[in-house]
Design a protein around this nucleic acid. Structure first.
Length: 211
DNA sequence: CCAAAGATGCGCT
DNA sequence: GCGCATCTTTGGG
Protein backbone atom coordinates (compact mmCIF):
# COMPACT_ATOMS: atom_id res chain seq x y z
CA UNK A 1 0.00 0.00 0.00
CA UNK A 2 2.87 2.39 0.76
CA UNK A 3 4.28 1.74 -2.73
CA UNK A 4 0.85 1.96 -4.35
CA UNK A 5 0.22 5.41 -2.87
CA UNK A 6 3.34 6.85 -4.51
CA UNK A 7 2.29 9.03 -7.43
CA UNK A 8 -1.32 9.32 -6.32
CA UNK A 9 -2.80 12.75 -5.57
CA UNK A 10 -4.22 13.61 -2.17
CA UNK A 11 -6.96 16.22 -2.38
CA UNK A 12 -8.50 18.17 0.52
CA UNK A 13 -11.33 20.66 0.15
CA UNK A 14 -10.87 23.85 2.17
CA UNK A 15 -13.83 26.20 1.91
CA UNK A 16 -14.43 26.19 -1.87
CA UNK A 17 -10.94 25.18 -3.03
CA UNK A 18 -9.47 21.74 -3.60
CA UNK A 19 -5.88 21.65 -2.31
CA UNK A 20 -3.88 18.91 -4.06
CA UNK A 21 -0.45 17.32 -3.85
CA UNK A 22 1.19 14.27 -5.40
CA UNK A 23 2.52 11.75 -2.89
CA UNK A 24 6.27 11.28 -3.37
CA UNK A 25 7.39 9.64 -0.11
CA UNK A 26 5.70 7.12 2.21
CA UNK A 27 6.61 4.89 5.15
CA UNK A 28 4.92 1.65 6.23
CA UNK A 29 4.38 0.76 9.89
CA UNK A 30 3.23 -2.65 11.10
CA UNK A 31 1.60 -3.82 14.30
CA UNK A 32 4.22 -6.47 15.08
CA UNK A 33 7.31 -4.31 14.81
CA UNK A 34 8.90 -1.93 17.30
CA UNK A 35 8.94 1.21 15.17
CA UNK A 36 5.19 1.63 15.00
CA UNK A 37 2.89 3.57 17.28
CA UNK A 38 0.54 0.57 17.12
CA UNK A 39 3.20 -1.62 18.78
CA UNK A 40 3.00 0.70 21.82
CA UNK A 41 -0.55 -0.46 22.41
CA UNK A 42 -4.09 0.85 22.23
CA UNK A 43 -4.63 4.23 23.87
CA UNK A 44 -7.27 6.89 23.13
CA UNK A 45 -4.93 8.90 20.90
CA UNK A 46 -3.89 5.79 18.96
CA UNK A 47 -7.33 4.21 18.63
CA UNK A 48 -7.60 5.04 14.91
CA UNK A 49 -4.76 2.60 14.19
CA UNK A 50 -6.96 -0.24 15.42
CA UNK A 51 -10.07 0.72 13.48
CA UNK A 52 -11.16 -0.44 10.03
CA UNK A 53 -8.67 -0.25 7.15
CA UNK A 54 -8.87 3.13 5.44
CA UNK A 55 -9.36 4.97 8.72
CA UNK A 56 -7.22 8.07 9.02
CA UNK A 57 -4.75 8.24 11.90
CA UNK A 58 -3.40 11.70 12.66
CA UNK A 59 -1.10 12.61 15.53
CA UNK A 60 1.26 15.39 16.56
CA UNK A 61 4.90 14.85 15.62
CA UNK A 62 7.17 17.37 17.33
CA UNK A 63 4.44 19.97 17.36
CA UNK A 64 3.02 19.46 13.86
CA UNK A 65 0.16 17.39 12.47
CA UNK A 66 0.98 14.10 10.68
CA UNK A 67 -1.21 11.99 8.39
CA UNK A 68 -1.49 8.20 8.17
CA UNK A 69 -3.94 5.98 6.34
CA UNK A 70 -4.83 2.67 7.95
CA UNK A 71 -4.07 -0.49 5.98
CA UNK A 72 -5.69 -3.91 6.19
CA UNK A 73 -5.23 -5.56 9.56
CA UNK A 74 -5.28 -3.76 12.90
CA UNK A 75 -2.19 -1.70 13.64
CA UNK A 76 -0.86 -1.50 10.08
CA UNK A 77 -0.69 1.92 8.43
CA UNK A 78 1.07 4.13 5.93
CA UNK A 79 2.57 7.48 6.91
CA UNK A 80 2.29 10.05 4.12
CA UNK A 81 5.69 11.67 4.46
CA UNK A 82 5.96 14.16 1.64
CA UNK A 83 4.32 15.32 -1.54
CA UNK A 84 4.60 17.83 -4.38
CA UNK A 85 1.94 20.49 -5.01
CA UNK A 86 -0.32 19.81 -8.01
CA UNK A 87 -2.08 22.34 -10.20
CA UNK A 88 -4.52 20.87 -12.71
CA UNK A 89 -8.19 21.11 -13.73
CA UNK A 90 -9.29 20.45 -10.14
CA UNK A 91 -6.79 22.70 -8.37
CA UNK A 92 -5.98 25.93 -10.17
CA UNK A 93 -3.43 28.63 -9.35
CA UNK A 94 -5.68 29.97 -6.59
CA UNK A 95 -5.42 26.58 -4.85
CA UNK A 96 -1.63 26.72 -4.94
CA UNK A 97 -1.80 30.27 -3.60
CA UNK A 98 -3.96 29.04 -0.71
CA UNK A 99 -1.43 26.28 0.07
CA UNK A 100 1.40 28.81 0.07
CA UNK A 101 -0.56 30.95 2.54
CA UNK A 102 -1.32 27.98 4.78
CA UNK A 103 2.32 26.92 5.03
CA UNK A 104 4.62 29.94 4.89
CA UNK A 105 8.30 29.66 5.81
CA UNK A 106 9.28 30.60 9.35
CA UNK A 107 10.27 34.09 8.21
CA UNK A 108 6.81 34.61 6.70
CA UNK A 109 7.97 34.39 3.09
CA UNK A 110 6.29 31.91 0.71
CA UNK A 111 8.08 28.60 0.24
CA UNK A 112 9.36 27.25 -3.06
CA UNK A 113 6.94 24.62 -4.41
CA UNK A 114 9.68 22.00 -3.94
CA UNK A 115 9.68 22.72 -0.20
CA UNK A 116 5.96 23.30 0.34
CA UNK A 117 5.09 19.68 1.21
CA UNK A 118 8.61 18.31 1.85
CA UNK A 119 7.86 16.66 5.20
CA UNK A 120 4.97 15.00 7.02
CA UNK A 121 3.95 18.06 9.04
CA UNK A 122 4.65 20.50 6.19
CA UNK A 123 2.32 18.50 3.96
CA UNK A 124 -0.47 18.65 6.54
CA UNK A 125 -0.01 22.38 6.97
CA UNK A 126 -0.08 23.06 3.23
CA UNK A 127 -3.25 20.97 2.82
CA UNK A 128 -4.94 22.32 5.95
CA UNK A 129 -5.20 18.86 7.58
CA UNK A 130 -5.63 18.99 11.38
CA UNK A 131 -5.61 16.26 14.02
CA UNK A 132 -8.90 17.29 15.73
CA UNK A 133 -10.76 17.40 12.44
CA UNK A 134 -9.47 14.23 10.72
CA UNK A 135 -8.11 11.76 13.27
CA UNK A 136 -10.19 8.55 13.31
CA UNK A 137 -12.28 9.78 10.35
CA UNK A 138 -12.61 8.07 6.99
CA UNK A 139 -11.80 9.36 3.52
CA UNK A 140 -14.73 11.16 1.94
CA UNK A 141 -14.99 11.88 -1.80
CA UNK A 142 -16.53 15.28 -1.07
CA UNK A 143 -13.85 16.52 1.36
CA UNK A 144 -10.68 14.38 1.37
CA UNK A 145 -9.67 11.59 -0.98
CA UNK A 146 -6.86 9.91 -2.91
CA UNK A 147 -7.01 10.57 -6.66
CA UNK A 148 -5.27 8.82 -9.57
CA UNK A 149 -4.39 10.84 -12.67
CA UNK A 150 -2.50 7.96 -14.27
CA UNK A 151 1.00 9.05 -13.26
CA UNK A 152 3.27 6.16 -12.29
CA UNK A 153 6.81 6.54 -10.87
CA UNK A 154 9.51 5.14 -13.18
CA UNK A 155 11.79 4.20 -10.31
CA UNK A 156 11.12 3.76 -6.63
CA UNK A 157 13.79 3.97 -3.93
CA UNK A 158 13.43 1.63 -0.98
CA UNK A 159 15.32 2.42 2.21
CA UNK A 160 15.07 2.63 5.99
CA UNK A 161 12.61 4.88 7.81
CA UNK A 162 13.61 8.19 9.37
CA UNK A 163 13.69 8.98 13.06
CA UNK A 164 13.45 5.43 14.40
CA UNK A 165 15.62 4.99 17.54
CA UNK A 166 18.08 2.10 17.61
CA UNK A 167 16.59 -1.11 18.91
CA UNK A 168 13.19 -0.21 17.48
CA UNK A 169 13.50 -2.16 14.22
CA UNK A 170 15.25 0.79 12.62
CA UNK A 171 16.70 -1.53 9.95
CA UNK A 172 13.34 -2.34 8.32
CA UNK A 173 13.30 -1.08 4.70
CA UNK A 174 9.83 0.41 4.85
CA UNK A 175 10.50 3.88 3.42
CA UNK A 176 9.65 4.50 -0.24
CA UNK A 177 10.50 7.49 -2.44
CA UNK A 178 9.64 8.29 -6.07
CA UNK A 179 13.19 8.81 -7.41
CA UNK A 180 12.05 11.53 -9.82
CA UNK A 181 11.17 13.63 -6.75
CA UNK A 182 14.00 12.48 -4.46
CA UNK A 183 15.25 16.05 -4.08
CA UNK A 184 11.84 17.19 -2.76
CA UNK A 185 11.27 14.62 -0.03
CA UNK A 186 11.96 14.89 3.72
CA UNK A 187 15.66 14.06 3.28
CA UNK A 188 17.09 12.79 0.05
CA UNK A 189 18.29 9.20 0.35
CA UNK A 190 20.72 9.95 -2.51
CA UNK A 191 23.33 12.06 -0.70
CA UNK A 192 27.05 11.92 -1.31
CA UNK A 193 28.38 8.92 0.63
CA UNK A 194 25.01 7.20 0.34
CA UNK A 195 25.57 4.10 -1.75
CA UNK A 196 23.07 2.16 -3.80
CA UNK A 197 22.98 -1.40 -2.50
CA UNK A 198 24.16 -0.33 0.95
CA UNK A 199 22.00 2.57 2.12
CA UNK A 200 19.20 2.24 -0.39
CA UNK A 201 17.89 0.06 -3.23
CA UNK A 202 15.72 0.50 -6.25
CA UNK A 203 12.56 -1.56 -6.09
CA UNK A 204 12.59 -4.48 -8.57
CA UNK A 205 10.48 -3.72 -11.64
CA UNK A 206 8.92 -7.05 -10.83
CA UNK A 207 8.04 -5.97 -7.34
CA UNK A 208 6.75 -2.62 -8.59
CA UNK A 209 4.54 -4.29 -11.15
CA UNK A 210 2.95 -6.58 -8.59
CA UNK A 211 1.85 -3.63 -6.50
C1' DC B 1 1.47 17.95 38.17
C1' DC B 2 5.72 17.52 35.87
C1' DA B 3 9.43 15.57 33.13
C1' DA B 4 10.79 13.21 29.20
C1' DA B 5 10.35 11.55 24.82
C1' DG B 6 9.10 11.63 20.19
C1' DA B 7 7.40 8.37 12.95
C1' DT B 8 10.18 16.81 12.86
C1' DG B 9 11.82 21.30 10.80
C1' DC B 10 15.13 24.85 10.30
C1' DG B 11 19.21 27.33 10.34
C1' DC B 12 23.91 27.14 10.49
C1' DT B 13 28.43 24.96 9.45
C1' DG C 1 25.43 16.72 9.92
C1' DC C 2 24.33 19.00 14.28
C1' DG C 3 21.81 21.75 17.71
C1' DC C 4 17.68 23.73 19.12
C1' DA C 5 12.70 25.22 18.96
C1' DT C 6 8.47 23.10 19.26
C1' DC C 7 4.04 20.92 21.64
C1' DT C 8 1.31 16.81 22.61
C1' DT C 9 1.13 12.37 24.78
C1' DT C 10 2.36 9.45 28.30
C1' DG C 11 3.50 7.67 32.70
C1' DG C 12 5.26 8.21 37.28
C1' DG C 13 4.96 10.73 41.75
Amino acid sequence: MAVGLLGKIIRHKVVDLWLSARIIETEAYMLNERGSHASLGLTPSRRALFMEGGTIYMYYARGGDSLNIGAAGPGNSVLIKSAYPVTDDVSGPESLAAMLRLNPARNGQPRAPEKLCAGQTLLCRALGLKVPEWNAQTLDASRLFIDDDGYRPDNIIRTTRLGIPSGRDEHLPYRFVDSAYASCCTRSPLGRSRLEGEHYHYLDTDQQWRT
